[in-house]
Design a protein around this nucleic acid. Sequence first.
DNA 1: GCATTGACGAAGG
DNA 2: CCCTTCGCCAATG
Length: 131
Amino acid sequence: MKKKVTVVKSRAKKEMPKNTLKEYSFFVDVYEVVRQIPKGRVTSYGAIAAYLGSRLSARMVGWAMNAAGSAKPKVPAQRVVNRNGILSGKHHFSTPTFMEEQLKKDGVNVKNDTVVDFKKRFWDPSTELAL
DNA sequence: GCATTGACGAAGG
DNA sequence: CCCTTCGCCAATG
């Protein structure tokens, strides 16, 4: 995977690369990180954003996830929740239940759209991956 | 080209 | 402790 992409300002391409060119650095990095989330663990947008260098850009992570739906190797976006451990993005999946279904299959209990023991399930790329 | 929004988060009131 | 505001960056209207 790519090392910390400090320079996220890759507005080089104003248009979506139709070629096999990689997506925007930020997005790619998000994908890379998300793909490395161990089974049964979850992380937050903010954690990823922080890992990327800007904890303020958590929203962009979510945006990246949106594009993740188009990402080739499917990105386990279901393992990414907000800081409360709430499946805030469940509505963006095929079905509203897909997200928690997948999480449950991973061994993560979901109750009321929230990850149970989120704190324990939390996987911080800055710590675990600690690149 | 400006204004609004978005799968977020932290800080302030 | 609940609610509001601001910040971040990119996409969309």
